[in-house]
């Protein structure tokens, strides 16, 4: 009992609210005032999304989730959570983005290294406040005990899973928005019903966190799943990795290129489409996608580059996703058959 008492005292000192469960074990509640209030909390622990300072054990109503096809981030492992406050629930919106009530949060930690050697680099949070979503990046310390607000982002030397030594970029607050926006408003990107497993959605529904499991749930294949068609895998990858900007209202809307899953117009997804503002990024090639000719397709060229000004996406990666480049090559080659 003394141990638990000490823990209680320590947690209270951190300003965390604790309630005793029936088992007697402490149950940490998320600090709604920090999620919904004004200002930018200076350390991640202020939100109490996790029971421990190291952010390993989620608090009450904080749920881990995974995506069928994730965003490539230099091979970082990502630990994703959503938080839905007491008395509120998510609403499904077809196969698209789940609708989060005010007071919700999405938490994503980027980690490198296996097992004992795993190190957290940064944790990004999206807070749904009354005046809209707010995106903030937090950077972990060497000791892995605290993540501090990094409004201006930063760079960290990292060795990727493929063994490349890189200068990993933690995005600044505005760069968070660069991807997370439509028509200038910040929005989540990842938790779309089509990219979430039916099991997870059912669990959320059964526990009262989600109004319904929608049609089209789990429709997006795992892009690495060889049993799915090349076309579906490629379109899934492009939807997740590119369409947050390359869609109407997105950061790259002026390019006229729309790589979202819903788009069916061949020209809009880049087939025989000349570049608009690609500059040297076009690499001397004439169209985004030339069916049957991956080597003549700007899309492959830019995904296969790690050079700023050429590489796409512009933000969020310093290395090349070689597997994905291969998938795009296969996809474009198949178009010529």
């Amino acid at each position: 009992m003394r141990g638990i008492g000490l823990l209680f005292a320590a947690l209270s000192a951190l300003g965390l609210s604790v309630v005793a469960q029936a088992t007697g074990a402490p149950k940490i509640m998320v600090n709604d005032a920090k999620v919904q209030g004004e200002g930018f909390p200076r350390v991640l622990a202020e939100y109490a999304f996790f029971q421990d300072g190291g952010a390993r054990e989620p608090s009450d109503r904080v749920h881990a989730y995974e995506l069928n096809t994730p965003l490539f981030s230099d091979g970082a492992e990502k630990l994703r959570y959503i938080y839905v406050p007491e008395g509120a629930k998510l609403d499904a919106d077809g196969d698209g983005l789940l609708q989060f009530p005010v007071g919700s949060a999405i938490i994503k930690t980027f980690a490198f290294g296996e097992g004992e050697d795993q190190r957290y680099i940064e944790t990004r949070v999206l807070l749904h406040r009354a005046d809209g979503w707010l995106a903030l990046p937090y950077r972990w310390n060497e000791e892995q005990t605290e993540a501090r607000l990094a409004l201006a982002g930063g760079r960290v030397p990292i060795t990727t899973p493929s063994g490349e030594k890189i200068s990993y970029r933690i995005p600044n607050k505005n760069q968070c928005k660069a991807c997370h926006s439509v028509d200038g408003e910040v929005i989540p990107i990842g938790p779309k019903a089509r990219n979430l497993s039916a099991e997870w959605l059912s669990e959320m529904h059964d526990s009262g966190r989600l109004d319904a499991v929608p049609e089209g749930a789990n429709a997006l294949p795992k892009w690495s799943d060889a049993s799915a068609s090349t076309d579906r895998r490629a379109r899934a990858y492009l939807d997740v990795n590119c369409a947050h900007c390359h869609r109407p209202g997105g950061g790259a809307s002026n390019s006229g290129l729309d790589l979202s899953w819903e788009q069916t117009d061949a020209f809009a997804i880049g087939i025989n489409k000349p570049p608009v503002a690609a500059g040297r990024g076009a690499g001397g090639l004439l169209v985004s996608i030339e069916p049957g000719k991956p080597d003549k397709s700007i899309l492959v060229h830019r995904m296969n580059s790690d050079e700023p000004g050429v590489a796409m996406p512009e933000l969020g990666r310093s290395t090349i996703d070689h597997e994905a480049v291969k998938l795009m090559r296969d996809w474009i080659a198949e178009m010529g058959e």
Partner: peptide
């Protein structure tokens, strides 16, 4: 020595 981003300054 820029290592990231598609432009020097972005205004939105």
């Amino acid at each position: 020595t820029q290592a990231g981003s598609g432009e020097g300054l972005l205004v939105t």
